[in-house]
Design a binder for these strands. Structure first.
Lengths: 291, 291
DNA sequence: TATTTTTTCTGACTTTTGTCAATCAAATGA
DNA sequence: TCATTTGATTGACAAAAGTCAGAAAAAATA
């Protein structure tokens, strides 16, 4: 690693450290130390299991217990025994707790808004922040099966289509393409997979069942901030696992030579180029893979 | 500000917060609380004036005094009275302090290296980190006069030339251009200005004195991470101030239509297009401004 | 059923960080 | 020169955060 790269990384670190400190001080403004505020924040975000909060915030069990009781005394949370295991305890916000949580959320939102609004070109800043956030947390990426109607899936697809429209010289209209019926991408005929990192979908891939003796891989997309990280490999691996689970033995896909990185990716991932197998107007490169 | 933009910013914030926490924990591994470690770090970075450290770390004077004495007792720093004002005190590292400081530096470097090395495309990550760091700290940008031989100035110029070589269809060779003698860009004939943020030069501009009744503005460059922030305005304002200070009444500059954003910038900054005034092979657009 | 393990709670600490007022020495300004 | 201001130190606290061992209750296991 070059000296310059390290220095730039550390400069970045200094910059965000002072930003983090600024948010912490604004939290202090609500008259509560950071400890209880962090616990309240975790509960508000849906982490109700006390042991889970403890693991997440790396707190000693004694300290956790006291912080929780403090919040109970303030009337912000109630703690009840878990149904399945009466030793474990579940914390939830009272109405007053929800109000207080909302106030912290407003502070966070205000800070985020302030960062963005003092930048003359927020979209560039957002893209840079996405890239950094994805790089730092990439190991936590989870691949999950969702219905194609999931709003996050729809968001991925919309972004994907917009990108195709930009890269194809004649634009792209999804209605001219063979738009798969949603149920072809759901079990038992197929599947739709989402790569999710910290609540944000950073990639997707669809497996579309057909009656022609093969299934099609469709809508493979990776967010710009997550490219070159090997996410496409993860997604395709998961798609192949799904296909095997559904008893599918042959996969086909089509793509376009205007997307050379995609063509290159399939070539080196064990796909074999085959002749055109549909009359879709957009693709001009066709692949097949036997599982 | 859209909901989505706020959510992305907060996701970024969460990602870097855990990274910051990881570095703090690694600092704790040296058996010293964060307070003294931060003071040691500040002194090691050349902030020797105690009042300055105090302001920088936002510490109470009593706490600061105790932290310093703790470091003195450990034999890591010595504190002496300032020459100019015997009330103020200067802290410096002992040899043992330098060793300890180096250990902290190694931890920081290791963490920075780890972030970079687990990314398959570090340069993209670095550029994103630069953009974020510049956006967060832009207000702290300082414009300072340096000799053109300053290594930071040389670094800016090298990057500038590389960029020109990429954008000019026939490439760019600075030796074919009228390479100004260094002394033409130093007082009393001219000046060379650097925009510096957190130790990194993010832009430059040169004022080159001539004997022809005008001075030339040369080498106006803004780092990609700082573009669209209005830095060129700041630099040009500073250049004009320098020129006025040197008794210069007329400024000229040349640029190239392959740099449309530069041409646009000068047009809207009160520069008037004039006919070619030199035989430099690269420029094809010429401007003049009276102060 | 008896024993062990897990989860939380409590009491009794310590360490770290932050605050405030009093004091002292040096510098500043009238 | 003498009062005032400034920068650092000190004592006396207080709040916040972290640690640890024991106890109680529930669950898991033998």
């Amino acid at each position: 690693m070059t000296i310059d790269a390290i220095a730039r990384t550390r400069r970045f670190h200094r910059a965000v450290t002072s930003e983090v400190g600024a948010l912490d001080s604004s939290f202090l403004g609500r008259g509560r130390p950071l400890g209880p505020a962090r616990v309240l924040h975790a509960i508000g975000n849906g982490v109700s299991d006390v042991a889970e909060i403890r693991a997440h915030l790396k707190l000693d069990s004694g300290l956790m217990s006291r912080l929780l009781r403090g919040l109970e005394d303030e009337g912000l949370v109630t703690v009840t025994a878990s149904d399945s295991d009466a030793r474990r305890r579940q914390a939830q916000l009272t109405p007053a707790g929800k109000t207080e949580f909302a106030a912290y959320e407003a502070l966070s939102d205000a800070q985020a808004g302030a960062i963005l609004s003092r930048h003359p070109h927020p979209e560039a800043l957002l893209q840079a922040m996405d890239l950094v956030a994805t790089a730092l947390g990439f190991d936590r990426t989870a691949i999950q099966r969702v219905p194609p109607s999931d709003p996050r899936a729809q968001h991925c697809l919309a972004t994907y289509y917009a990108e195709l429209a930009e890269r194809f010289s004649g634009g792209f209209d999804v209605n001219l393409s063979a738009d798969p019926e949603a149920r072809d991408m759901e079990p038992p005929r197929g599947a739709f997979l989402l790569a999710v990192l910290d609540g944000l979908a950073i990639g997707c891939a669809g497996l579309k069942g057909t009656d022609k003796g093969y299934a099609e891989v469709k809508r493979v997309w990776v967010a710009p901030s997550a490219r070159r990280m090997g996410l496409a490999d993860l997604l395709m691996q998961a798609i192949e696992d799904e296909a095997r689970g559904l008893g599918i033995r042959t996969l086909r896909l089509d793509t376009n030579s205007a997307l050379p990185e995609a063509v290159r990716f399939y070539r080196k991932s064990g796909w074999r180029e085959i002749p055109r197998f549909n009359d879709d107007p957009y693709p001009d490169v066709f692949f097949e893979k036997h599982l």
